[in-house]
């Protein structure tokens, strides 16, 4: 049975030390100025004003069940791995058009400045293939990040989810069913950014696609009509007076 890899992150345990970000950069050779993961910190002023506390909210690609980035890719260069449920990028098929970037509500994707293809967290696919956990998970000093297979009933992530305390942080208008769950007090459950389909993609899907199908359909209809006529009137010839054509038209 295939896996459904996920993370459960405990905001209580996170101390915003950024070790996960450093470990990720190191493990995945993430270029300068770019990050595959992040820690969202509370708005200090807001916390001071209303006294409502919020803890740190570490994140990375959520390996969503319904990934809008995959929906925005024309070629399947970004796809959901059927074996482990992670969202992956085929760097050789990707041409770096960047349509998946705004399609991710979490901003998990960036265009790699040297490779010029989309890049993001893949739960450390390379480390996993060597039997290791993702770098951010291994390195976290407080073990705020728990990683595992939701389809494995004995896994820690499954047990944590079964407590009923874990929440997803999603945008209500574009719920992608993310596979990162939060414990503790990660802040508002409503993610402020909505997934955006790029205009060129939306134009293709909603207008150019149907119009072009209509055009080719009309052409095929014309061919069909000519074909029917060819069978119905096999001896269709001009009137005798037309023989020789009409030069004065």
């Amino acid at each position: 049975m295939e896996k459904k890899l996920a993370m459960v992150i405990d905001s209580f345990a996170c101390i915003d030390c950024k070790a996960c970000q450093a470990a990720c950069k190191e493990a995945n050779k993430v270029p300068k100025g770019q990050w595959r993961n992040w820690i969202k910190t509370p708005d200090v002023e807001a916390v001071a004003k209303n006294g409502k506390r919020m803890l740190f909210q570490p994140g990375n690609c959520m390996q969503c069940e319904k990934p809008t980035c995959v929906e925005a890719c024309p070629t399947g260069a970004t796809y959901k791995d059927p074996l482990d449920g992670t969202v992956r990028i085929d760097r050789r098929l990707c041409i770096g058009c960047g349509q998946c970037l705004p399609a991710c509500p979490y901003g998990a994707r960036y265009r790699h400045p040297e490779l010029k293809v989309a890049d993001k967290c893949d739960f450390c696919a390379e480390r996993r293939s060597n039997g290791l956990e993702p770098a951010c998970v291994s390195t976290c000093p407080n073990k705020a990040r728990v990683f595992g297979d939701l389809n494995d009933s004995g896994s820690m992530v499954r047990k944590l989810l079964e407590t009923g305390n874990a929440v997803q942080i999603v945008n209500n208008k574009s719920n992608t069913d993310p596979h990162i769950y939060y414990l503790g007090d990660p802040g508002a459950k409503d993610w402020p950014v909505k997934a955006q389909m790029p205009s060129a993609f939306a134009f293709w899907k909603n207008l150019a696609g149907p119009v072009m199908k209509g055009f080719v359909g009309l052409s095929a209809l014309g061919v069909g009509a000519m074909l029917v006529k060819q069978f119905m009137m096999p001896n269709d010839t001009p009137n005798k007076k037309d023989e020789g054509g009409n030069k004065d038209a």
Binding site: G96, R111, P198, A200, F201, F203, W204
Partner: peptide, 9 residues
């Protein structure tokens, strides 16, 4: 990249 995106369409 918007140039590339529109090129695809």
């Amino acid at each position: 990249t918007p140039l590339v995106q529109w090129s695809i369409t």
